[in-house]
Design a protein around this nucleic acid. Structure first.
Lengths: 252, 252
DNA sequence: GGGCATCAAAGTGCATGCAATTGAGGCGTT
DNA sequence: AACGCCTCAATTGCATGCACTTTGATGCCC
């Protein structure tokens, strides 16, 4: 309805945007696992651009929290801690409640059919690859957000949804992703009906259940995660020792 | 309490970070008004770095919504629409409610004194420069967020607070910034008392009042804003004409 | 006098080159 | 065999250079 403004904010320079989108997708489909290395050269070569551009793209993704940039080191796909994962979900819940609050009873027919079509796609993908159904489920929420016509809200919801998606690949047991298709349908129905309070509650419980179902307990010693387990012990005083130990550990 | 992880995410490359912080501050202190041009060369020269770095910094700030990047054009300080400003405040309210919810009754003595010290500083600056008191008020909220030890929450609150700050320079009448010192103090008191519901309500009304008090109505024709006023009329059909008109307008 | 083509100056888009840092393997010592 | 040291390939940090685009100023024609 409102005039679609030309996407003017970040990522406009196209080539950078292409790389960002590709990596983002690869990450949420778990083709790139947390910790995966992302050397600038390789990226540049893959996408047919120079390191400068690849670097810029990595910068953007780092700003979104999807990759980690350490000075003079190869960039890697982010490995959020379990607590960060939980925090991300908490934020996401609030943001998405805002989304459905704004949308309740205000969806156009076209929007409703678009949503239904998307959920149908989710349904179809449910039996197939895990990665795809996770991605589709995430994109449902982003699609919803994009209907608010609030660029800021879209950006934050997208970002935090991607982050949550990333954490799922770290802390969820396989197939715990169980398509929330029925919940998505319920949300659409409540939105159409215009019941603000109900749809906010639905969204809350939907996301909360995804979080608690997927984010299984901190996953005791799992090889790489030893570092994280050690982290809390790395307090000021005996910091040196632990750092050294951690280094030894990391060297496998 | 939790071990402070080394800031590993974006903006790590230092030189870029320095520029980002400087520009961010200049923007929220209104030394750089919305629409101000930010040529890469000038920035590079000013900060003693090459265009490459300046460019990278602009990219980061664009990702935060503080500057606008248009292809082949000079970057400018962002000029959010009135609606975007309102949206930003709505998001901010939810995020900051989350902050105080997590913090209620859990502040350490040191944190309380830090908060009080900050509010004292706000108080002191209240009579002085408008820009400084706006900045301090914003930083109070960021300080609060940083006490959650949730890096993600800190990032989002900071970002959206900066954006709100930016919008204030666009849509608020001078001095409407009226230091919310007393409200800040009330929030601290409620946090210490640990009354979760109350402090969430306080934060809500505090931000909401700032928003409605500061964001005066869309400010009918104010020169530059003509473009925005025209925007809704730029629907599909007669698009060409309006674009042309808009261009003529922009040329002053 | 006003509109319009033309052109130089300014600025961005991007690749490349060089210096600096890292970390991994090899070698000697204990 | 374990530990430390050294060296070198891999990789990042950053500046510079060149091509292309935008801007706006000049002069021409009506």
């Amino acid at each position: 309805m409102a005039p679609r403004a030309t996407a003017k904010s970040a990522e406009s320079t196209d080539k950078v945007g292409v790389i960002c989108r590709a990596l983002r997708r690869a990450i949420i489909e778990q083709a790139l696992e947390p910790g995966a290395k992302l050397p600038e050269d390789s990226l540049g070569e893959r996408f047919g651009v120079s390191r400068t551009i690849a670097r810029h793209a990595l910068g953007q993704l780092a700003a979104e929290g999807l990759v980690e940039l350490r000075r003079n080191r190869i960039a890697v796909v982010a490995t959020p801690s379990w607590q960060e994962a939980r925090d991300a979900f908490d934020i996401r819940i609030e943001l998405e409640r805002l989304v459905v609050r704004q949308l309740a009873g205000k969806l156009t027919k076209a929007q409703v059919t678009a949503l239904n079509a998307h959920v149908d796609a989710e349904d179809a993908a449910c039996g197939g690859a895990d990665a795809v159904s996770i991605r589709l489920a995430t994109e449902f929420h982003i699609l919803l957000a994009s209907m608010t016509n609030s660029p800021i809200l879209v950006r934050y919801v997208s970002e935090v949804a991607y982050r949550c998606c990333l954490t799922l690949s770290l802390y969820s047991r396989p197939h715990s992703s169980e398509c929330g298709v029925t919940e998505h349908r319920a949300i659409i129905a409540a939105l159409v009906k215009g019941d603000e309070a109900k749809v906010m509650g639905l969204m809350h419980s939907h996301l909360d259940s995804v979080a608690t179902r997927a984010l299984v307990a901190p996953a005791p010693q799992r090889g790489r995660d030893l570092l994280d387990i050690l982290a809390p012990y790395a307090e000021e005083d005996s910091g040196e020792r632990v750092v050294k130990l951690a280094k030894a550990v990391r060297a496998r």
